[in-house]
Simulated scan of single mutants.
Amino acid sequence: MRYSWLNQNGLSTCVLFMTGWGMDPLPFSSIPSGRFDILMLSDYQHLEPVNMQLLAQYEQCHLVAWSMGVWVAGHLLHEVRDRFTTRTAIGGTLDPIHATTGIPPEAYDSILQNFTRNLLNDFHLSMFTDEQEAQRFFNNRPDRTPDDLLAELDAFKKHYLNYGTSADIFTQKIVTSRDRVFPFKNQLRAWGKKESTILKLPHFPFYTLPGWEALVDGAF
């Protein structure tokens, strides 16, 4: 796992951001951090306990987990959930590779078995419904090699098959209704309509939302 500070200015409040597959700081570097320091975790080829000492100095911490990071957060942070004042899941579920409550296994395996640069381009495009947002991402694509991405994709499947459903630690569950990666209906089944907030967002929601404060405060 890789730790990256998106913002570190000695503020009193921190957001721990558990990102999804294939990411690094580049796509998120321009997102306004607001009143938070932002610590991002990425690259889940090997799972290990989260280094909570990195958050020890903060008066208050919040958790934001996105996509496959939702499963990782539930798996790794369930015993320390109370350290986080709010815990937000967006665009992901506790069963990330699942026919009815995650990414359908056949879709996941298709990417895994046919992984190429062109397929990666198609996947990244599928994360957006707005051309300008997609171009913004392509201008700031993660600096990860194809072999590295494929290894992480394979590792996610092995992690999930090994550990199964992760713990529901979340105080806020955001369903992204324009999602073409985690199907909307599967997200809704996973969380339940009464327990979730449905927003008209693509899978990659961070360029549509005004900043990290919207996710933490629920000010959509």
Results as ranks from 00 to 15, higher is better:
A89E: 04
I90P: 04
G91Y: 01
T93S: 02
L94H: 06
L94Y: 14
P96A: 00
I97A: 00
H98C: 03
A99Q: 08
A99W: 10
A99G: 07
A99D: 12
T101M: 11
G102I: 03
I103S: 07
I103T: 09
P104L: 05
P105H: 01
E106Y: 09
D109K: 07
S110W: 10
I111R: 10
I111D: 11
I111M: 14
I111V: 14
N114C: 07
N114F: 05
R117D: 14
N118Y: 12
N118A: 14
L119S: 02
L120Y: 09
N121V: 15
D122T: 09
F123M: 09
H124T: 13
H124C: 14
H124N: 14
S126T: 13
M127H: 06
M127N: 06
T129D: 03
E131D: 08
Q132M: 12
E133I: 10
A134I: 10
A134K: 06
Q135T: 07
R136M: 12
R136D: 15
N139M: 06
P142H: 00
R144N: 06
T145Q: 05
T145W: 04
T145C: 02
T145I: 08
L149F: 03
L150F: 05
L153Q: 04
F156N: 02
F156G: 00
F156S: 00
K158N: 13
K158R: 15
N162P: 15
G164D: 04
A167F: 09
D168R: 01
I169K: 00
I169E: 01
F170P: 04
T171A: 00
T171W: 03
Q172C: 12
K173L: 07
I174T: 03
V175L: 02
V175F: 01
S177W: 03
D179Q: 02
V181L: 02
P183L: 00
K185W: 10
K185I: 08
N186L: 03
Q187I: 09
L188I: 10
R189S: 08
R189P: 13
R189F: 14
A190V: 09
W191N: 04
W191E: 02
G192N: 02
K193I: 15
K194F: 12
I198R: 05
I198E: 07
K200Y: 13
L201F: 02
H203A: 05
F204H: 11
F204A: 14
